[in-house]
Design a protein around this nucleic acid. Structure first.
Lengths: 115, 115
DNA sequence: GACTTTCATCGTATATCGACGATTTACGAT
DNA sequence: ATCGTAAATCGTCGATATACGATGAAAGTC
């Protein structure tokens, strides 16, 4: 790869890195399950999630932390029942990024894609 | 988690596992970059990808294999210039899965979401 | 004050990932 | 037959991910 290409693709690469970070946060069945549960309730405490996914409390706490760090879940501290909720704006943004990727993939003419 | 919930969520969990496997395949900047390049060309050989992402040939080969194993990329064997291409149908299916997840998240009424 | 509940964090063990160089395989060209 | 190229695979390593139990900290209950 020559230097010009490196520079030309710098922004693109950076964006992909950010997107892949969020995708990595999604890429675990337990975390998808957690997101699913957070979607059902307006807000959720850790204890409820623990009962659902069947993992140890410390493990669930870690998974939720990963989602928070990725910016997909918001956190309102409350010692007795910390309230976690989906960051719907962030999920929409990620959805847009993914759509953009698939748009590109269908840009040259895809019979299955009407975009 | 009681047994009833375990059984009730079995299918759901299985689906999430499958989805998370594909998301994991997407969750790396190099692989997003590879997908992007495959999107531009109708088909692509490994060498071209190597030039673009600036990684060793063996590394690129591994990344592509991950995409193929995840069912996101198709492979037409040709010793001199193996042709890889996006599996557009699979990408559409994954997009649908992701949309379903976000749909659920906005199901209880999201002012930002018109779905 | 003692106890319980809820949650975060630490430490640890194990498994998987990511990158590379080296090697192997297959083919076309000379 | 030999060489060069393209690609897959192997082996290795450091880094990261995943899971757990143990421990600690805050807040409510007796």
């Amino acid at each position: 790869m020559n230097t010009q290409n490196l520079e030309r693709n710098a922004h693109e690469w950076c964006r992909m890195e950010a997107t892949s970070r969020q995708l990595a946060a999604l890429a675990h069945p337990a975390r998808l399950s957690i997101l699913n549960q957070l979607a059902a309730a307006d807000a959720c405490c850790v204890k409820d999630v623990v009962g659902r996914v069947g993992l140890a409390q410390s493990t669930v706490s870690q998974h939720i932390r990963i989602l928070v760090d990725a910016g997909l879940v918001t956190y309102r501290a409350n010692r007795q029942a910390s309230a976690y909720a989906l960051d719907r704006a962030a999920l929409h943004a990620l959805s847009g990024e993914i759509d953009a990727l698939f748009e590109t993939c269908c840009g040259t003419g895809c019979e299955r894609c009407d975009r």
